[in-house]
Each structure stands twice: as C-alpha cells, then as structure tokens.
C-alpha cells in the first residue's frame, strides 16, 4: 500500500513563503494498492496537482479509473474537484463516495460547485464517466482489493472517517472531527463555545461515547492514522465549536486503537512551517509518556509512505 499526501491544510489554501515546506493546499491523500487500485481521499486543492500527475499515464488516454472518497463537502474537501484534469477526458471512470444526506443527493451538492455562476464548466460537460455512491455511517464495502470501512465523526454537518485495508496494511483517515467530549455536532449552526453551565445531556454524552468507540475501532491496529490536528490547546479553548481536534486528541485515539503511526494533518491556515515543526516536536515529547510506542510524523505535501507489502 502506497500513501501520498497532496494537500494537508484545513479551511482554505494558504500560498506563501510561510507554508512552503508543509504545503498550502487543502486536504487530499492518495492511497494505491500493489494491484493498482487507486483511491483518493478528499478533493481539496491538492487534487489538482495529483490530477496533472495522473494525466501523464493512463488517464491521459482515457483509460484511467479512480475512486474518490469524500469525508464531507465543506469547501476545503471538494474545491479541487473542478480542477481535476481526469474529469475532462472521455473514457476515464471516476467513482465518487460520500455520506448520504437526507436533504440533497451527492451529485446535486457537487453540481452546485460547478454550476453557473460559480464555474464555467458544468458537470454534464465533464467527459469522464462519473458515478456517485452514497454511504451510511458504519458502512463497509470493497473497492477491488481494498476493504473500506466508514464511521461518523463529530463535525458540523457531520463528516465521515475512512479506514482502508489492503496488502496486509491499514490506513485510517480522520479529517475533520472535534474531540468527543464537549459538543455534539449535527446539522444546526453553533455560534460559540458552550457556556460553562450548559452540560451535555446524558443522551448526547452517550452518542459521543459511542462515536468515539467506533472511531477507535476503525483505527484498531492501523499502520497509519491520518488525523485532524488543526488546533493548539489554546485555540481549541477559544473555538471548540469549529469542530476540530488537537494533537493530544489524535494521540489518545491512536493509543487506544493500538495504531503504529500517526500523521498530523489538516493544519490551521495560520500555522507556519516553523510552528508545525514545533507542534510535531511537542507532540512527540508528550506522547513519549502517553503513547510510547506510537511513531508520529507531520503530514506534508509530497510525503510518500509505503505500508505492508507493495
């Protein structure tokens, strides 16, 4: 199993000298199996360069196939799709997956992004064959030789975590989620941090506990967990209602799941390269006590990992 990072940033792309090393593109990770199954997780702006890379091989002649798993449809996870070159070549086969919604189907959500007046090329002009598949929380299915599992995350409007197993290895992808402690996110708008007096209801507590245990199960024995580490502890105190985690939350989940390696991911737009270096160093230091066996890396554009065989 080969894993390549194409975009590691949260919220919006942040070009400039402060983000040159880790990269300013939004979320996108590519997973490919030894047998050649190609799965792309999230379609932030990082997918643009990957698409250009794919066009150097079978996608150029319209003979490519790829599966795109979308964690949720916030902009930083879909905004690269209209710039994914393989979409515009007849013959390519693209399968797009995301959580099922009550209100709107996946195709129409993604169509809106490329409809007038926002983008000049509507979906029906994309020449590749595009199929959509909607998933429910807890779904498990196969994409060729890869087994995919899903779990619900704690994020505004709800996001999905994915685990992919193939070639004797497992990777879990958890962007974006809040910790499973202070707020239960659903579809409603949350304007600010919860007041100190407002306690979570018993049933909300229970929902969060269940959600957490399902995420831990999803990560169980993973060779790599890619996890939302947008916030510092101080930032989390100010904006817990944004629905993102701290490195310590990621370490805890990895520890409980017995995962081997954690990749920090989905950095806040303000986080400079030097600050990511510092976050990595402090997370490693703290984890020496709390999760001594866990290997920790910081995701960056161009990070290329081989797990298991192939």
């Amino acid at each position: 199993m080969r894993i390549q990072f194409w975009g590691v940033r949260g919220s919006l792309p942040v070009p400039g000298p402060r983000t040159e090393r880790y990269g300013g593109n939004t979320s996108c990770v590519e997973v490919s199996s030894a047998a050649g199954t190609r799965i792309i997780i999230d379609a932030g702006t990082g997918i643009r360069r990957m698409g250009k890379e794919l066009m150097r091989a079978e996608f150029e002649s319209g003979k490519g196939a790829a599966h795109i798993l979308i964690s949720h449809t916030h902009w930083d996870h879909i905004q690269g799709l209209p710039f994914f070159a393989p979409f515009y070549r007849a013959g390519n086969k693209l399968f797009v997956y995301a959580r099922q919604r009550d209100d709107q189907n996946l195709r129409s959500v993604l169509s809106l992004q490329v409809d007038s007046p926002f983008f000049p090329v509507p979906f029906h002009k994309a020449r590749a064959e595009v199929a959509f598949r909607e998933l429910h929380d807890g779904a498990q299915f196969e994409i060729n030789d890869v087994v995919v599992s899903c779990a619900r995350l704690n994020h505004p409007y709800i996001a999905t975590a994915y685990a992919l197993s193939v070639d004797g290895a497992k990777v879990a992808y958890i962007a974006d989620t809040a910790p499973f402690t202070d707020i239960l996110f659903g579809h409603e708008f949350i304007a600010g941090p919860p007041s100190p007096r407002s306690l979570l209801s018993k049933s909300d507590h229970k929902t969060l506990r269940t959600m957490r245990s399902q995420v831990v199960r999803l990560c169980e024995g993973a060779d790599l967990v890619i996890y939302d580490t947008m916030f510092t502890p101080e930032e989390y105190r100010q904006t817990p209602h944004f629905g993102h985690s701290r490195p310590s939350d990621a370490v805890e989940i990895c520890h409980d799941a017995g995962a081997r390696m954690l990749a920090l991911y989905h950095y806040a737009p303000d986080r400079s390269d030097a600050e990511v270096d510092a976050v990595l160093a402090s997370t490693r230091k703290e984890a020496k006590l709390t999760a001594p066996k866990l290997d920790i890396v910081a995701g960056f554009e161009g990070l290329d990992l081989a797990l298991g065989k192939g």
């Binding site: 942040v14 070009p15 400039g16 000298p17 040159e20 990269g23 300013g24 554009e301």
Partner: peptide, 17 residues
Amino acid sequence: RGSIPSPGPGTVRYGGN
C-alpha cells in the same frame, strides 16, 4: 492569481492567492 490558489515554492514571489 486566477482560477484556483496555487501554493508552492514556485509562486512565493508573485503569490498564489
């Protein structure tokens, strides 16, 4: 920049926003 932000070492002088 036009079309889409283009972060990276190749655009730091003029900018990718």
